[in-house]
Simulated assay, not measured.
Amino acid sequence: MNVETPPARGFIRSRGMRVPRHPGITTGRIRAALRAETFERKECEAVMRVVQKGDRVLELGGGIGYVSTLIATQRQARRLVCYEANPALIPHIRRMHAANGAERIELRNALLTPEGGAPLPFYLRKNILSSSLDGTVDPGAITGTVEVARQAIGPVLEEVRPEVLICDIEGGEAELLPAGDWSSLRAAVIELHPQWIGQSGVQAVFDAMHGAGLSYFPRASHGKVVTFRRGW
C-alpha cells in the first residue's frame, strides 16, 4: 500500500535546514512555524544545549525528521538512531535527511515497547500527522491499515548504548521509559504528555531518569519539555 502523498517540489528554510515541502505535512500552522523557526522550538533549544559532537543519540519519535536533522548537521553526533512508528512519515524523513546531507542517520520504522511482540496495526489517515495506533479515534478518516513492527527496548539499548535520549512519543513515555536501562545516558530531553499520562505517568518518567542517575536540568527545560543530565 502507498502510505504517502506525493511530495510537492521545493523547500522551506528553517534553522539553516531545508525542509521538503509536502502537501500533507508542511501546511498551515506547521509551514508558518517552520518559517518563523518556532517549530519544535522548546525541544530544539534543549537539544542544542545538551547534545555534543561525537555523542551516540537515540531519538524516539522522529516526527518529520526536523530534530534528527538538526542534531546531525549542527551537533555532528557520532551515531544517531531514530525510531518513528508512523510509516507515512518515513519517506518524508528520508527526503529531509538527504536534502541536508544527513544521510548517515539510522532511521527505523518500528515501535519500541517494554517487551516487544507481534506487529501492531497502524491506522493511516488523510491527515498524515493524525495517523496512529488508535483505530477508535476519528474512524471515518482512516484510509488504510498497515502493520508496524514492535521491538523490545532492552536489546535496542544494549546495541545503541545512547549517551543522549530524545523522546517525544505521544504519551508512550510513561510505560516505555521505566522499562529501560538508561545507565549509559549523560542527558535526556523528553516531551511529556500529562493530558494522557496524568500525574502518575509524569512521576514514572522522573523516577526512571532519576533511577538512571540523571537530575532534572531546569535551564534546558521548557514546560512539558523536560531535560535531565548527569552531574552539575
Rank of each mutant, 00 (worst) to 15 (best):
N109Y: 06
P155W: 02
E106F: 00
L112I: 14
A110V: 12
E147N: 15
L124R: 05
D138A: 14
P139R: 06
G116D: 14
H97C: 01
A152S: 15
L120F: 03
A99N: 05
L120Y: 01
D134Q: 11
L124D: 03
P114E: 11
E103A: 13
R108K: 11
G116H: 07
A99M: 05
P119V: 14
I142E: 10
E103H: 02
A118E: 15
A141R: 13
P139T: 10
E106P: 00
E106R: 12
G135M: 04
I93R: 00
D134H: 10
L133D: 08
L112C: 06
Q151M: 14
G135I: 13
A118G: 04
L129P: 00
V146M: 03
S130N: 11
G117R: 10
G116K: 12
A152N: 11
I128T: 15
S131N: 08
A141K: 05
N127F: 03
I142Y: 02
I153C: 08
G116I: 08
T145L: 02
A110S: 13
L133C: 09
L120N: 03
I105H: 06
R94D: 03
L111Y: 04
E147H: 11
G117V: 13
R125E: 02
A99G: 05
K126S: 10
T136R: 09
Q151A: 14
I105G: 05
A141V: 09
S132T: 14
A99S: 13
A99C: 13
E106K: 08
A118L: 11
G116P: 11
R104I: 00
M96T: 02
T143Y: 02
L107Q: 04
L111W: 10
A102K: 04
K126H: 10
P139N: 08
I93G: 06
L133P: 01
H97V: 02
A98G: 02
M96N: 00
V148N: 06
G154C: 01
L133W: 04
G101N: 07
I153Y: 00
V146H: 04
I142Q: 11
A110P: 09
A102Y: 00
N109H: 05
A102G: 03
E147Y: 03
P155V: 12
A98R: 14
A149E: 15
G135Q: 05
T113E: 11
I128N: 00
L111S: 10
E147F: 07
G140K: 07
A118S: 13
A118V: 12
P121W: 06
L129C: 03
T143P: 08
T136E: 08
M96L: 12
A98H: 13
Q151S: 10
D138V: 05
E103F: 00
T145W: 02
A98E: 15
H92M: 09
I128M: 14
T143G: 08
A110D: 09
A141Q: 09
P139S: 10
P91G: 07
E103Y: 01
L112G: 12
R94E: 14
M96Q: 07
E115G: 11
A102R: 01
P121C: 12
E106Q: 14
T136Y: 00
H97W: 03
N109S: 07
P91K: 04
A110G: 09
R108V: 15
V137T: 06
P91V: 12
S131G: 03
G144N: 10
I142R: 08
A152G: 12
G154F: 01
L124G: 04
